[in-house]
Amino acid sequence: MSDAAPGHMPPVAPVTRQIDQALVDRYAAAARDPNPIHRDTVEAREGPYGRPIAHGMLVLALVSQMMTEAFGESWAATGQLAVRWRAPAIPPVAVTAAATPAQHADGRLRYSVRCTAADGELLLDGSASLRLA
């Protein structure tokens, strides 16, 4: 693909997942993350949110899943991500990852990405880019 305006970049379909405590618990086990703020613990209940929060990397996983569904192995071979977390995802919450075409330069497609809660709260934003094979 030759360089083109963002409007001519391939669209990326958003991904929505329900993040509940069971999913957070499974992620804690799979990622071997012992941080008690993600589980039903005294630390979580006495923390700033009064309850467990989802792992930031679990929220970010929706972005990578979205890019994998759109670009397959090209994402695994050339993908780049840079994000900042803006607010915690507090289960149960439906989280949507979305991408907006931002730039196509030097053969690289760059999208602005964000994850939002069902009430519209911004959880994460940043960029994702890749080079198509």
Binding site: Q18, R26, A30, T68, E73
Partner: peptide
């Protein structure tokens, strides 16, 4: 990992290549 992120398998992953994240 796919189960823990509510993700679905895609063509090639996870059998040929690991989920990048």
């Amino acid at each position: 990992y796919l189960d823990a992120t509510a993700a679905t398998a895609t063509d090639g992953s996870p059998d040929r290549w690991l989920p990048p994240l």
